[in-house]
């Protein structure tokens, strides 16, 4: 297997992390619908600046990430993880995976809440999984990744909204 394209340079990996961040904003801006112009107004910047960030997110500053997220009522976490892929043959993990895991764990605000959720889950047994892409929800595998440390990804989370949308248009 040849290395993933993001392993060619730090610039490539950073560009992908930026794209993953923008993908989250794009999704959030789908509903309720918000245009780049409306976002620019909210941020008090030119529309051209917003387009620049969306089209070339590889060099976006942390401060800009926080600012854009907050404008959409989102918070940001920088997650590092170890995925047993030190040569980066497989590329980065999508930050949405981390968000979904957090939501599936009842959105713990701290480690006590996470522990309580885990204890509760142990008592009840795991939630049955029946979707075709159940791999997305595999609990142990993903929490193990969250618990370890290595490359980083930017994840944004909206506590009120997001859930996995699987409306299956053109999908298996």
């Amino acid at each position: 297997m040849k290395p993933h394209w993001t392993s060619h340079s730090i610039k490539d990996f950073s560009f992908r992390v930026g794209l993953d961040f923008i993908a989250q904003l794009d999704k959030k801006m789908e509903y309720p619908p918000m245009s780049h112009s409306e976002l620019a107004t909210k941020l008090n910047v030119d529309k051209s600046r917003v387009s620049q960030v969306f089209n070339d997110p590889g060099k976006v500053k942390l401060e800009t990430i926080v600012k854009y997220s907050q404008a959409l009522n989102l918070k940001v976490a920088i997650v590092t993880y170890e995925d047993d892929d030190p040569e980066n043959l497989k590329g980065p993990i999508d930050p949405e995976i981390f968000r979904i895991c957090w939501e599936k764990a009842d959105k713990p605000r701290d480690f006590w809440a996470f522990e309580e959720h885990h204890e509760e889950e142990m008592k009840q047994g795991p939630e049955p999984i029946s979707t075709a892409d159940s791999r997305l929800y595999m609990y142990g595998e993903l929490t193990q990744q969250v618990a370890n440390v290595a490359p980083f990804t930017v994840g944004v989370g909206d506590e009120s909204q997001i859930r996995l949308q699987r409306n299956a248009v053109g999908q298996v």
């Binding site: 394209w5 490539d12 560009f15 992908r16 794209l19 993953d20 993908a23 794009d26 999704k27 789908e30 089209n55 070339d56 590329g91 999508d94 949405e96 892409d133 791999r135 997305l136 996995l164 949308q165 699987r166 409306n167 248009v169 053109g170 999908q171």
Partner: peptide, 28 residues
Amino acid sequence: KKIKDTLITRFEYWQSGKVHKKYFHGWD
């Protein structure tokens, strides 16, 4: 390169099972 990398990323999103209608979709 930027356009190519962005499109490759969108291919990879689809490959990973992600749903993102602004980036890709079929017709039902």
